[in-house]
């Protein structure tokens, strides 16, 4: 197990190196640079040239890449061109928001997706099956910005149940400890701050959950269909176990293996989905900041954020692999 983890972590090194090189070249080849974004309509050739020169953007790309790598290897990801704050500070400030949002979306997607997939499989061919699969598919077909707009219009503007923007009501004077607003509220016993942060997570969570929901429903359904035909399920049913016991101990537990893999892989799509969701909900997370960074060609932020996200993606998948051993004891034995 230890060697497995070390090997996977070592694989990160060439992955990150390759990613950084590709990303660096791609970003610097995009039309326009930070100087255009900084100057906007007031751009003049002289000003553009001065900014490019001062930022070293007029140097050959390999020189720029070398400078970037030297800095990264010394543990410094540089500072944002737009905000002039260290990239790591920007990331650490925004990452908790994205994590809270991703967890909310996963809870919603798993909480709805697995029961729906299970019911669809057990009632295969009925209208419930068609409705579950069709409904979940519809969720993924609707663009995030449109779904976000509709959800807000109905549940917030019309009914007034939820807030539509931000991570917390700006008039609440909440104490920040970890940057995870919900957790901070609980740690400091500022219950209204925690409750408000939860309320701010629900709508974006629903919208973001629409992305993995269809996959979870489909994989659960397929997996359950396969498992229910296994001999051990038939045996369990034949020996008179209750439906609940058969469902939880024999069907779901075995059917969850591919679902867990899917959820791990979906974390990546959740992070990319967060880009749009966070913008639509003015939610301060890494996704919305990446959008702003692309607009202003904020190379250090884009390089830093995407590389950190890549590391997280690999680590999450590693955790998923490790979780197999919890779900399936046979993996542990092997």
């Amino acid at each position: 197990m230890f060697r497995f983890i070390v090997r996977r972590l070592l694989q990160l090194i060439p992955t990150l190196f390759g990613l950084s090189l590709l990303l660096f070249v791609w970003l610097h080849r995009l039309p326009g640079g930070p100087e255009t974004a900084i100057l906007g309509e007031r751009s003049t050739p002289e000003l553009r040239a001065r900014i490019r020169e001062e930022m070293g953007l007029d140097q050959p790309i390999w020189v720029q890449y070398g400078r970037f790598m030297k800095r990264v290897l010394s543990g410094d990801l540089g500072t944002s061109i737009g905000t002039k704050r260290p990239v790591t500070t920007e990331f650490l400030e925004r990452f908790p928001g994205t994590v809270e949002l991703t967890i909310t979306a996963l809870i919603i997607a798993v909480g709805i997706g697995i029961p729906l997939g299970y019911i669809a499989a057990r009632r295969r061919g009925t209208w419930i099956d068609q409705l579950s699969v069709g409904g979940a598919l519809l969720g993924i077909c609707i663009p995030v910005f449109f779904l976000g707009y509709i959800v807000k219009e109905v549940l917030a503007v019309n009914f007034g149940w939820f807030p539509t923007t931000g991570r917390q009501d700006v008039t609440i004077d909440a104490t920040r400890v970890t940057g995870f607003f919900v957790l901070d509220g609980l740690l400091t016993r500022e219950w209204d701050a925690a409750a408000d942060a939860i309320m701010h997570l629900i709508l974006p969570g629903i919208v973001l959950a629409s992305i993995p929901l269809a996959s979870i429903v489909r994989i659960t359904r397929a997996s359950v269909l396969e498992v229910v035909q296994e001999d051990y399920v038939r045996t369990a049913e034949a020996k008179g176990l209750t439906e609940q016991t058969v469902r939880s101990r024999h069907i779901l537990r075995n059917a969850m293996l591919p679902v867990a893999t899917t959820i791990g892989l979906l974390t990546g799509s959740l992070l990319s989905g967060a880009v749009l969701t966070e913008t639509v909900f003015a939610f301060s997370g890494i996704g919305a900041f990446i959008v702003e960074a692309i607009d202003r060609r904020d190379y250090p932020v884009l390089m830093g954020f995407i590389m950190i996200v890549a590391v997280i993606y690999v680590l999450v998948n590693l955790l998923v692999d490790l979780s197999y051993s919890l779900i399936d004891p046979r993996v542990r034995v092997r």
């Binding site: 539509t164 923007t165 700006v170």
Partner: peptide, 23 residues
């Protein structure tokens, strides 16, 4: 007593936040 500027970059989101009483 207090003046708070809250950033909402999307114009539709600003409109909905106004209608919802957040701004």
């Amino acid at each position: 007593k207090k003046l708070i500027f809250k950033t909402i970059s999307d114009v539709n989101a600003r409109k909905q936040a106004l209608k919802n009483g957040e701004i």
